[in-house]
């Protein structure tokens, strides 16, 4: 494990030096709030944020991606992205979510590999930023994460007053730190202590959600009328799924003009939408919000446990914070677990 300290104002210098030809992504204060975007200078970066509004999944799995173009009978495949990325500042929960998405986009048997996602992931260095002060809606520790979790990250950074403490947690992270070693100062003992204390404090302040036995519970109560009650407020929009760092459903459609030229695109899709399950016959097996919200919860807390061995929720709290009717997933889980 390599460690090193830099001053905050040297962050961009470090990232760009180590980057070489890589693109640098970092949190910026954009038109719609905090977002991850390609940056070109230090002053674009903001460190004053709890988390981004949209999860960083869109860096690897964009909302709209052209897969191939066509004109008449000629079909041209779009080359898989080659660009290499450095992503700075994603929170440990979102870093963890990337390991889940990895499982979806490259299944362990190796049968289905998603070249678009994987190419971007392969060439990326993830530098995550430990949370100093988790939000009141955060619950990562209840779903296997931590405000200073290392999973999914190549380097974990602690924010200490005017300095940043870098700590590599993968070979790729170590290589990154080696290439820029001249810029790092030796991490001193009090830096390490401060980081440790900060991590402990953040963790201790987190609310605890008891999800023990939740999977077994929800598997048994699929038909329970309680689902009607807990989903009554749901409006049926897709805000929770689009902001969620682990939601990964997509749709593939063709768009063309009158001349027969066009493209095939992959776009995000949401289990909350009527079109998601509409059959060609006109039959729709999930017609109401109860069924759709149940699917969302079952998928995250049961089906993915069967398929990948993990709960696909990292406790980032975005769905709680941005739900137009404050339909709180913590409440729903608590209610279900008490059944």
């Amino acid at each position: 494990m390599a460690q090193g300290v830099i001053k905050k104002e040297d962050l961009y210098r470090l990232l760009s030096t180590a980057a070489g030809k890589k693109k640098v992504y970092a949190p910026i204060d954009g038109v719609g709030g905090i977002e991850f975007a390609e940056i070109h200078e230090q002053k674009e970066i903001t460190l004053d944020y709890s988390n981004s509004k949209l999860s960083p999944k869109s860096i690897f799995f964009p909302q709209r991606e052209v897969l191939c173009t066509f004109a008449d009978d000629a079909l041209e495949e779009v080359q898989t992205p080659k660009e290499a990325l450095i992503v700075f500042g994603i929170r440990p929960c979102d870093a963890l979510s990337l390991t889940y998405l990895d499982k979806v986009f490259s299944d362990s048997a190796g049968r289905f590999k998603d070249p678009y996602y994987l190419k971007r992931r392969e060439n990326a260095v993830i530098i995550s930023l430990a949370c100093k002060e988790p939000r009141a809606t955060c619950f990562c520790t209840s779903v296997g994460g931590s405000p200073s979790g290392k999973e999914g990250a190549d380097i974990l950074v602690y924010e200490l007053a005017d300095k940043l403490l870098f700590e590599s947690c993968s070979d790729r992270g170590q290589d990154f730190m080696k290439t820029a070693s001249v810029l790092f100062k030796q991490a001193e003992e009090d830096h390490k202590t401060a980081a440790k204390e900060q991590a402990e404090k953040a963790k201790d302040g987190m609310p605890v959600l008891n999800l023990n036995g939740l999977k077994e519970r929800v598997d048994k109560v699929f038909e329970d009328p309680l689902w009607d009650e807990i989903t009554r407020n749901c409006l049926g929009c897709g805000a929770c799924t689009y902001l969620c760092p682990t939601c990964h459903c997509f749709d593939i459609t063709d768009e063309e003009n009158r001349k027969g030229e066009g493209y095939r695109i992959r776009t995000w899709d949401s289990c909350q939408y009527p079109l998601f399950t509409l059959h060609a016959s006109g039959h729709n097996p999930r017609v109401n919000k109860k069924q759709r919200m149940r699917q969302r919860i079952m998928h995250k807390y049961s089906y993915t446990v069967d398929n990948y061995g993990d709960i696909f929720c990292v406790g980032c709290g975005r769905c709680i914070l941005y739900c137009p009717v404050n339909l709180d997933i913590r409440d729903m889980l608590n209610t279900l677990n008490k059944l």
Partner: peptide, 15 residues
């Protein structure tokens, strides 16, 4: 500018 922020989550329509 306003439209460019939209992620097509349909929250406006549903609300």
């Amino acid at each position: 500018r306003e439209i460019s922020k939209c992620i097509r989550c349909n929250a406006c329509r549903q609300a």
